[in-house]
């Protein structure tokens, strides 16, 4: 296992270097996807199966498809914006300085880290019984630091709004379905297992690695597959229901937090008897919003529509 870790670390460095030095965009993307695979394995070795799952679903999977899709949409020329002289040099200088600063900060952080970093973790584990879920990571995400998770949901929605603002009209569902018969059949064959696994991961978050983010990403993958096989396309108009579903996670999370203030006396605190059903409700509504925003980030449109052949 030591050898395995050594090889893994070596390959990680190699691929990370490759990502920034690759000769073309596609080569960098390919290196990045393989880096995602290795990162997932590293999380496994670091005993963080939750992160391994997240990396598998988001890092290597969804992000890889997103990057490849973006690469496809780029025009044949004009990808490499060569900046005029002073800016070009400055870009490299800024990157070098940034890298150096990051390295120094990391070194300092490693140096400063106290030998007992587990205090918060132990407190969380001790309180696990009150959290309403058996899985410590989910308990921390949805209960102990619920406020952070709510803001993360907000960040994702922000990212989506940002992407919609800068989107190009080209991506407005203008791409047609691939002509091969196999890919729609793949979609039909794969859709039930993907949906099932996505929902299962959301549900499993309560007692084993999984949860809203991992499950949501897998559900988004189902949508991306429908979009890639032409069964679903981006539309420039969005319905009220879609906006509602996008906001659902944040709305349910906040409403539960606010409505229960008279009972518990604190924002985002949950009463004992209700805590488990609340966790599940919040988890599923978050997953729906996460899945939809990731899918819309992929199509780059504010709405979705069914394609008719």
């Amino acid at each position: 296992m030591m050898l395995l870790d050594g090889v893994l670390a070596l390959l990680l460095l190699l691929l990370a270097g490759r990502c920034v030095t690759a000769a073309s965009l596609l080569q960098a993307i390919v290196a990045f996807i393989v880096l995602g695979l290795l990162l997932a394995l590293s999380w496994v070795r670091l005993q963080a199966p939750d992160l391994a799952l997240a990396e598998a679903a988001i890092g290597a999977g969804l992000l890889g498809v997103l990057l490849l899709g973006t690469w496809r949409h780029l025009p044949a020329s004009g990808i490499h914006h060569e900046f005029p002289w002073p800016w070009h040099g400055m870009k490299q200088a800024v990157s070098a300085l940034g890298g150096l600063a990051l390295a120094v900060m990391l070194a300092l952080a490693l140096h400063e880290t106290a030998p007992e970093p587990a205090a918060a973790g132990e407190t969380a584990l001790a309180q696990l019984d009150a959290a309403g879920v058996k899985q410590p990571v989910t308990a921390v995400l949805l209960n102990f630091r619920a406020y952070d998770t709510l803001l993360e949901m907000g960040v994702l929605l922000m990212a989506l709004i940002g992407a919609l603002i800068v989107r190009r009209p080209l991506q407005d569902g203008s791409r047609i379905a691939p002509a091969t018969l196999l890919s729609p059949s793949l979609a039909r064959l794969f859709l039930p297992p993907i949906l099932l696994i996505g929902l299962y991961l959301v549900w499993a978050g309560a007692y084993s690695p999984g949860g809203a983010f991992q499950g949501g990403a897998v559900l988004a993958g189902a949508g991306v597959m429908l979009a890639l096989t032409g069964l679903l396309r981006g539309a420039s108009v969005d319905g009220l229901w879609l906006r509602g579903l996008l906001a659902l996670g944040a709305i349910v999370f906040t409403t539960a937090g606010v409505l229960l203030v008279p009972v518990t006396g604190h924002f985002m605190a949950y009463p004992d008897g209700l805590v488990t059903p609340l966790m599940v409700l919040i988890e599923f509504s978050l997953a729906i919003s996460i899945a939809l925003s990731l899918l819309l980030l992929f199509t780059g449109t504010p709405g979705l529509a069914r394609s008719r052949p």
Binding site: S24, L25, L26, Q27, R72, H73, L74, A76, P178, L182
Partner: peptide, 19 residues
């Protein structure tokens, strides 16, 4: 199957996507 079809088209160049 998809990759084979893609490669069969013969216009597979590396760096730039086809417009």
């Amino acid at each position: 199957h998809l990759i084979a079809r893609y490669a069969l088209d013969g216009t597979d160049s590396d760096s730039e996507p086809r417009a």
